[in-house]
């Protein structure tokens, strides 16, 4: 029983941690922005900032569902492959029926089914999430290849494409969507029992189970949400690129995980926030933007990303151990 009591104050601590974590990250973003605006005239323009936010939105949609999974202490390696499969199914659906709504339903449906598969493997078959979702990565990827048989599908209705490339009051539509999902996500994780239970499972699964939280059904839920968000991301992808082919998801998974980690969510679970993930994605996008603006060799990009991942987490360890000792 003492474990349950231990879990409760731990959770309170995470809230205050969130605030400091996010503050540090905003500071980092500000520093990057100042540095970039000093070296490139083009950086600090409304156009470019909107451009950066629009690019960051794609990362955010993929990373937000993943954040929920990681908050429970699990991982989802199938995220890129799920984006690929959802995109390809949705693309064919839109082309064959002409209905964007059916396409959207297909993308989110396929994503949710893949997510449910992940969840059931973890909760029912007791396969560690790392391995279960790695297996799913191959299955989803293979299904995509089989489905597409080397072709690409392209040319969607203008109404659908507005989702990715349209503007409303001068601001790209994906940015509105991102802000909306950030708000919903904030409410969901911080203001609902579900959200608190997700944090509690990550902080201490055994204690969460003992205190009556339906751990398995919450785990299934986060995996389904992760898949559904990947489905949503695939729609943004389709709407922006106006085209789908089998290799969409291959290079997306590790950068998405990096965005979550840079955003301050702990891979042990229980610590982190969606807002942090948003900033993590923003930092990664800013790096690419800066390198393009300065005409730097893109070969340096993985190296810089790697260093930032290490730096972000190291600083977190530093500041958190201070918070803990208070």
């Amino acid at each position: 029983m003492s474990q349950i009591e231990a879990a409760a104050p731990k959770f309170k601590l995470t809230v205050s941690r969130d605030v400091t974590d996010v503050a540090y990250r905003l500071l980092a973003v500000a520093l990057i922005c100042i540095a970039l605006s000093l070296v490139s005239d083009a950086f600090l323009t409304a156009n470019n900032l909107l451009n950066v936010l629009r690019q960051a939105s794609l990362v955010f949609f993929m990373a937000s569902g993943l954040t929920l999974v990681i908050l429970t202490g699990k991982i989802d390696l199938s995220i890129g492959a799920t984006v690929g499969l959802s995109a390809c199914v949705a693309a064919t659906m839109i082309k064959s029926t002409g209905s964007s709504w059916l396409g959207a339903a297909a993308a989110i449906g396929v994503g949710s089914i893949v997510g449910l598969g992940n969840g059931l493997m973890v909760t029912k078959l007791r396969i560690p999430s790392f391995i279960a979702t790695y297996g799913m990565l191959w299955v989803a990827q293979g299904a995509t290849y089989y489905y597409m048989s080397g072709q690409s599908v392209y040319g969607f209705p203008a109404g659908f494409r507005a989702l990715g490339s349209g503007y409303l009051l001068g601001i790209p539509i994906p940015i509105y969507l991102m802000v909306a999902f950030l708000a919903i996500g904030y409410f969901f994780t911080k203001r609902t029992t579900y959200g608190q239970q997700i944090y509690a499972i990550g902080a201490n699964t055994v204690a969460a189970r003992l205190s009556g939280i339906p751990v398995n059904s919450r785990l299934n839920l986060v995996f389904v949400l992760s898949g559904a968000m990947a489905g949503l991301a695939s729609l943004i992808y389709l709407a922006r690129l106006n085209s789908a082919e089998g290799d969409i998801g291959e290079t997306l998974t590790l950068p998405t995980i990096a965005a979550v980690v840079i955003g301050g969510t702990s891979l042990f679970g229980g610590v982190g926030s969606l807002f942090g993930t948003f900033i993590g994605g923003l930092i990664l996008t800013l790096i690419l933007n800066g390198m393009n603006l300065l005409n730097l060799n893109a070969n340096w990009q993985p190296l810089v990303t790697g260093l930032i991942v290490l730096l972000a987490v190291w600083l977190d360890m530093k500041t958190r151990s201070k918070t803990d000792s208070n």
């Binding site: 590790l254 990096a258 702990s266 070969n299 340096w300 993985p302 991942v309 987490v313």
Partner: peptide, 15 residues
């Protein structure tokens, strides 16, 4: 954490 550490060094080595 090992996952993060080696994700970082993966990027460095690949770069």
């Amino acid at each position: 954490p090992p996952f993060v550490t080696t994700l970082g060094t993966l990027g460095i080595a690949q770069g």
